[in-house]
């Protein structure tokens, strides 16, 4: 067997599998999105973008991502740095912090609903300390800020750990000697973080951010549980086209729009965090 072809032969099964179950359905979806009554058309896109709910669901999705991802990034960095310094109990802490990862997004939404709803913990607690007289419905159209906050909190609680896991692995790979050198040459702890940790963590930051941002654009179940129709997002609209309005073409067009946004942000993140040419990290 020619050793030059062996690697290709070995990845062939996976490639075939992906073509069959990913590429082929993707092409079907694309076809659906770009065709109306059997003919090639942009009408599906014009329809979904022109619909009055599109701008608001686009804006909501973006706002949520803009609010959630930076907080998660900061939290994950802080937690990863802390875990990395730990000698004992490191694994235990890591397990505890990653528990939310094992909970489905819908379940996470329901957990936070139990906190925020009219008969929830928050109401009972505030009533107990005398902050409010009677239970109020925080998650109503009168309190859009609280709805947003509840969704953001649930997302932060649920999905920070995915970044944490990636960053902990990345930080663990940075040799201790770099920190000692930085310390000897006068870098304060903060400077060591910004001048050593962050640049050397770039590959992990890329992965974590791309993954997290893509997931943020696909947010659905948490919003459905906490906001219902009060807070439309892109993925929720896609769901509505497909299953409530039974409009396959429009749903396919929405899916492609979300994909395009994801690809655009992936490219931006990769570019922003690229390693300078020649530097090996």
């Amino acid at each position: 067997m020619n050793a030059r072809y062996l690697p290709y032969l070995l990845i062939l099964p996976v490639t075939l599998f992906l073509c069959l179950f990913f590429l082929y359905p993707f092409i079907l979806v694309a076809q659906q999105a770009f065709s109306v009554d059997g003919g090639w058309s942009l009408k599906n896109f014009e329809d979904v973008i022109g619909y009055w709910k599109f701008p608001i669901s686009f804006q909501n999705t973006m706002l949520l991502a803009a609010a959630v991802v930076p907080v998660q990034l900061a939290l994950a960095l802080l937690m990863a740095t802390m875990v990395n310094r730990m000698k004992k109990g490191r694994d235990l802490i890591l397990y505890v912090w990653t528990i939310p990862l094992g909970i489905s997004d819908l379940a996470a939404g329901i957990i936070w609903l139990a906190i925020f709803e009219q008969s929830g913990f928050l109401n009972s607690m505030m009533q107990a300390v005398g902050a409010i007289d009677r239970p109020t419905n925080f998650l109503s159209y009168q309190n859009p800020g609280i709805v947003f906050l509840a969704i953001a909190l649930a997302e932060i609680w649920r999905a920070t750990a995915i970044m944490l896991v990636i960053l902990v692995a990345g930080i663990g790979l940075i040799p201790k000697e770099y920190y000692e050198a930085a310390e000897v040459f006068g870098a304060s702890p903060w400077k060591r973080f910004t001048r050593v940790t962050l640049p050397l963590l770039r590959p992990s930051l890329q992965t974590a951010l791309v993954l997290r941002v893509i997931l943020a654009f696909e947010i659905f179940a948490v919003v459905a549980a906490l906001g219902g129709t009060l807070f439309p997002v892109l993925m929720g609209e896609t769901y509505a086209y497909q299953f409530d309005l039974l409009n396959n073409g429009a749903a396919a067009a929405m899916a492609l729009i979300i994909l395009a946004i994801s690809i655009a942000f992936t490219l931006i993140i990769m570019r922003a965090l690229r390693v300078p040419k020649g530097a090996t990290i």
Binding site: E177, P199, L200, R202, T280, I281
Partner: peptide, 10 residues
């Protein structure tokens, strides 16, 4: 340092 600790990103 023994392993130089020359920063790879600089």
């Amino acid at each position: 340092f023994q392993n130089y600790a020359v920063f790879p990103h600089l």
